[in-house]
């Protein structure tokens, strides 16, 4: 699996954690044609609104750990 696919999978898992599987499935389809930076921005945006900026940044950091973007 390439790094972009790993990022997409990690992003979808993170969305599923907080928003549930139904929301995550829709985002999975949406992320297919999105760049890595767009995926990170998108996840950061919905998470910041829902779990607060500080927590969202923590989760994004964990999500991108070990990935070469």
């Amino acid at each position: 699996m390439n790094e972009s696919s790993k990022l997409q999978q990690a992003a979808v898992e993170l969305i599923s954690k907080y928003f549930g599987q139904n929301t995550a499935k829709v985002y999975d389809k949406f992320f297919v044609d999105e760049s890595d930076s767009a995926i990170v921005v998108s996840v950061n945006s919905i998470l910041s609104d829902y779990i607060g900026k500080t927590k969202a940044e923590e989760e994004i950091k964990k999500m991108t750990e070990g990935l070469t973007l």
Binding site: Y18, L47, S48, D49, Y50, I51, G52, K53, T54, K55, A56
Partner: peptide, 9 residues
């Protein structure tokens, strides 16, 4: 408190 600033808080 952990979700400060967010709707979940």
């Amino acid at each position: 408190s952990e979700y400060r600033g967010g709707k979940l808080a």
